[in-house]
């Protein structure tokens, strides 16, 4: 038999394209839509003469973003730290717990229904409670609510990944007389990685929500959620909107960071772009 390379060759990727999984050209339609929507927003508000307290013009939000950039950056950074802390704490614990539940399956069978149920309840409702557990001014209260929000989706996804191993792959490991630890290290964890990253990406969004909404129930004066809330209360809607934009950008940054790590880690997957 000849060894002519008839196999599918990998699509070469480079630079940023490799990180985000697409070439820049592939982003073009999305960019066009974004620019179009913003332009339409601006035009409609001007044409219909919408009051600024209902919806400010994008150009006004952009100007405010620039004028108050130092304050916004400080507030954004403060809140981002809370979100990141909560994300790392919640996701880290979730992965550890998932490993334990996958290893001792009886435990997993007993506890998984509760994890799934917890995943379905609006945990953000507990934000006022964590604010009383810790001082509302303290970062810890937001870190905890963000962590709890991150915990369940990461737990459920990781556990699903660890237990969705091809039975043949396990038989193969048994044929090599591999122990349970080896099976985890060489089969279960690599199989689970794509599932874990799915959970982590959901968690990045939840972490930012947890931190900002947590701050709505009381937080330090230089926090993003507090800034958005107070500006909206005194009818400075352009500043509130600028705060929202920063929150979006922070959330997006966290998401993209995780997606980039996923790309680098899951090099073997032909295409993780949807």
């Amino acid at each position: 038999m000849s060894s002519t390379p008839t196999a599918v060759q990998p699509v070469p990727r480079g630079g940023m394209g490799r990180l985000v999984g697409r070439r820049m050209v592939d982003w073009l339609p999305a960019v066009i839509v974004l620019v179009g929507v913003i332009a339409l927003w601006e035009i409609l508000i001007r044409a219909l003469d919408v009051q600024a307290f209902l919806l400010p013009k994008p150009s006004e939000i952009a100007r405010t973003l620039w004028d108050t950039r130092h304050e916004l950056w400080a507030a954004g950074w403060f809140t981002f730290q809370e979100a990141l802390g909560g994300f790392l704490l919640g996701s880290g614990l979730a992965i550890l717990v998932a490993l334990v539940l996958a290893r001792w399956r009886a435990l997993g069978t007993a506890l998984l229904p509760f994890a799934i149920a917890a995943n379905a309840i609006p945990i953000i409702a507990f934000a006022p409670i964590t604010n009383t557990w810790f001082s509302p001014l303290n970062k810890s209260s937001k870190i905890v609510i963000a962590a709890i929000l991150c915990f369940f989706p990461v737990l459920v996804n990781t556990l699903r990944g660890l237990t969705s191993v091809n039975p043949r792959a396990l038989e193969l490991m048994h044929s090599y007389a591999a122990g349970e630890a080896e099976i985890f290290r060489r089969v279960r964890i690599p199989t689970a990685l794509p599932f874990i990253f799915t959970g982590l990406k959901v968690a990045t969004v939840l972490a930012m929500i947890g931190a900002v909404v947590g701050e709505y129930f009381g937080g330090a004066l230089n926090a993003l959620g507090v800034l958005i809330l107070t500006r909206a209360r005194v009818f400075q809607f352009d500043e509130a909107w600028a705060g929202i934009v920063v929150a979006c950008l922070m959330g997006l940054a966290l998401y993209i960071a995780v997606a980039a790590i996923e790309r680098l880690t899951l090099r073997w997957v032909p295409s993780t772009s949807e």
Binding site: R168, A169, V187, P190, W268
Partner: peptide
């Protein structure tokens, strides 16, 4: 490890 085994699916580890 006196035997090697091959299944219908190659069961290669993707990673």
């Amino acid at each position: 490890r006196d035997y090697g085994i091959v299944f219908q699916d190659a069961v290669l580890y993707d990673w």
